[in-house]
Amino acid sequence: MIVGVDEAGRGPVIGPLVVASLGIPEAQINILEELGVNDSKALSPSRRLEIRNKILKYKNWKYSIVEFSAEQIDRSMEHDTLNNVEVKLFAKAIDNIGSECISKLILDACDVNQERFGRNVSSMIKATSKNFELISEHKADSKHLIVGAASILAKVHRDLEIERISQECGFEIGSGYPSDRKTKDAIPLLITKDSPHIHLRWSWATVERAWKEAGKGKLPLRPRIPQNTGGQSSVDSWYRQL
């Protein structure tokens, strides 16, 4: 099985970070080209959704979506780096689809040192045997169809979550990226109460700056996340073998 892994939402000030993995038989890699798979950033939202729905119809393909909320990101950033968080999420997404049957693993590296990122992810995978070819590259989503497909799964999932958050807020929040005009306009509306909105990343400088510009003083600390009594990880994950 060839597996690709990519993320969506590393830089936004609103919403979750999403990591997706996709595993398919190597002999079927040409199907991804037939489906029109490309780097998700090169596709329109409607085209991404169309391709994503086609990918999910293949019953012998495996995928995993791992979502890390803004709240979880903030809590992790108190003692970790974003690169290390992504390493753990990539490993989680790989383990979810069954790392024992991988023949080739291709990662879209988030670290400036792409080889180091690959080594770190590999070391976190729970498989007892790691006898697979490992490729860790920058912009792998535009170089490898399997990673492009994973990027589509991650991007569509995050887009749907951003749409849900927007509906919850009652106004448009844009893409969640600080450079997005709609997001810029939404941030002041998300800091009107005694603390920033739960879906904002409080640890981002953008939020701290907006909080101070609103004359609200020092940014408060996030409340502690309640302990999960179900024995599950703080990483919210979904896994489905198609």
Rank of each mutant, 00 (worst) to 15 (best):
I2Y: 01
R10E: 05
P12S: 05
V13S: 06
V19C: 04
E26R: 01
A27P: 00
I29C: 03
I31H: 04
S40T: 10
S40D: 08
P45H: 03
E50C: 02
R52K: 15
R52L: 06
N60G: 08
Q72T: 14
D74M: 04
R75T: 15
R75K: 14
M77N: 06
M77P: 05
E78C: 04
D80P: 00
T81S: 15
T81H: 06
N83W: 06
N84S: 11
V87I: 09
L89P: 04
A91C: 01
G98F: 10
G98Y: 10
E100V: 02
S103E: 13
K104Y: 00
L107E: 07
D108I: 08
Q114D: 04
R116Y: 01
G118L: 01
M124E: 14
T128C: 00
E133K: 05
I135L: 14
S136Q: 05
S136F: 00
V147H: 03
I152L: 09
V156N: 04
V156G: 05
R158E: 00
E161W: 14
E163Q: 15
Q167S: 14
S175Y: 09
G176H: 07
Y177D: 09
K184G: 02
I187L: 04
K193P: 02
H197F: 11
H199C: 11
L200E: 11
V207C: 09
V207A: 08
E213C: 05
P220H: 10
P220K: 10
R222F: 09
G230A: 09
G231N: 09
Q232N: 14
S234Q: 12
L242V: 13
